[in-house]
Design a protein around this nucleic acid. Structure first.
Lengths: 191, 191, 191, 191
DNA sequence: AAATAATCGAGACGGTACGTCTGGTCTTACC
DNA sequence: GGTAAGACCAGACGTACCGTCTCGATTATTT
């Protein structure tokens, strides 16, 4: 086993870099984010950033997650169907705000940064999908959804249009849309 | 009224620029596309590009459309429901190929280029949506879909997951997925 | 023949770069000279410097020559022997001052920059040698030097020790040394 | 009086550092030599080098001397004049080879590293000068040179042109030059 | 025909940021 | 206390493109 040798990683500068990254992300957006800028703002050397993060994309994802992670959770009531409705509405509300801009920019930039894409998918999308899956399973058990439902397809069907409007069409992500859409899909999931 | 004076726009170089742009897009992707590179390849001056296109994004969209426009059309049979199924499968096939990469990159880059976003939406997404809308109206008339259907929501529900997998989750866009998903949504649209 | 096309070189920035280079050379020496520093001081872009000069060495030589060139000349009296003595003493005096430091640094740096070496030799040493040669020829004609003298060897013999003390031994380059040395060599050049 | 405390200096790493330095000097020249490179090659820490050597220049001089020291010696025949001629020719031969490159680079770099300059002068040039001085004294005693000769000036006059061609003019250091030059100077040293 | 305009190519310019290299300092754990 | 390992701040490197700006040459259209 390899023994740890040499000076240890400086937790202070790690934090400073993530904070600076998130601040710049908020102020100027991902596109204008630069490693130079982060280093200057964090008071660290560029090399320190390059040592630990492979690209500005991955750095941005990590900074985003560190701040935003603990914000979204599913309710857990007796009606999984209701839980989903409520969670979709709060996700839509979240995406109408600054978080929506971050998600837009993250996914946009991930199109030409595979490492960033991986980081975003496994750090953000998959945990959310796992939670949603659990709710669907509860819903099947409770007899609210058909037993032969494919959870992956159902989740995509439910959530994808929110991302589509966010990323592509620019359509409004308001309650009317969310409710109308959810009812359409849930109708197809009835037993 | 302003009268046209002076030398006219050179159609030759317009074509050369669009061709060079598309070629570079194919070879290296949108991210590595640069105005300098296009100018060099097209044998024109950078100024000529800047004179006629506001950003490399808009230029890329235009080059993409000039080449890819006439590729996807809806079949027109007696069963609009079948027409939709068939068109979705050919769209999915298209997106598994090079066009999928272009669309990915276009939408990705459009996240920080509003003009590009507009160009892509009105040049690519909206025409497709108009066609789809017509099919839905035929379907309602034929009694295949419920009469109170909201075409915009229905279209988003049907197509968004394809874009979601293309842009966000990286999931496969194969026939099994397309069919499974389409059946789920169409079930919700039955009369 | 190639016709001049495009925007012309900006004489203002050329001057600004040379002036800034010389100023920094004076203030901090060749070693601490940097292209970044010159660009900042001159108010130009780094690219403009890289466009026209192949290395900081060549730039420094050019800046040095532009300032120092017109300072050293040979006297022209009836006695070439006396002209040489006088010129050697004024060269020695010059090398005891700031110019000596520049020449030291130029030659030092030229050891690992071939282009710089070429620039310095052809821009500084060779013109001086050509002048010296003419004086020697006058001296032979006047019967002050042996007719079979090899001017190149004679010039090296006379001037090299000044450079040796400047560059290598660090010995004093005072009048006593110059006179003592010149008399030794000139004794060997008598008819 | 200071008592030696703690771990003693590791002779192994001292040797490894000097060897690595000389090897890199041979392979890539002084300019591309770096403390990092030496440390990596020698398998030591950078700090160990910084602890014992003040600059890469001094390190290089030391590595050079450790290897090259015992190469040039004066013959000792009945004719000091002949000894000098022979020694100059073997020095010239030496400087046409790799040693010439080292000397060039050492002296070049010493222009902006005073400690290096001192190390090189006292470690290389002065021992050689002391030997030469002894030969001159023998020569005066033997009646081959004038009695009022200034040995320092004579030595500079003889050897400087070799260094001048090595460092500045780039002229050939061949036998024809060495002989022609030595005869000129020795003529001026005759009794 | 001459004057006036707009376009085009070429390419220089001031800038920003890149990702890398090396310098010299420091911290840690081992010997 | 010396040492190997290696993280850290600092700063310059040379490059790629950006978007703007002359230039001189090349078409039209208008007088």
């Amino acid at each position: 086993m390899t023994v740890a040798r040499g000076r240890k990683r400086d937790e202070t500068s790690r934090q400073a870099i993530l904070s600076a990254t998130f601040a710049l992300l908020e102020e100027q957006g991902f596109d204008r984010l630069s490693i130079e800028g982060v280093a200057a703002r964090a008071g660290t050397a560029k090399t320190t950033i390059y040592r630990w993060w492979p690209s500005k994309g991955v750095l941005a994802v990590e900074a985003f997650l560190a701040t935003t992670e603990p914000l979204i959770a599913f309710p857990d009531s007796e009606s999984p169907r209701e839980d989903i409705m409520r969670q979709m509405r709060s996700l839509a509300a979240l995406y109408r705000g600054p978080t929506g801009r971050f998600v837009r920019e993250m996914i946009g930039a991930a199109q030409h940064d595979a490492a960033m894409s991986t980081a975003f998918v496994s750090g953000f999308l998959e945990p959310r999908r796992a939670q949603a899956k659990a709710v669907f399973h509860r819903g099947v058990a409770a007899g609210e959804f058909r037993a032969d439902l494919d959870a992956d397809i159902a989740i995509d069907a439910l959530y994808a249009p929110i991302y589509y409007r966010l990323l592509a069409s620019g359509g409004a992500i308001d309650d009317a849309f969310v409710i109308g859409h959810a009812e359409l899909v849930l109708r197809g999931l009835q037993p």
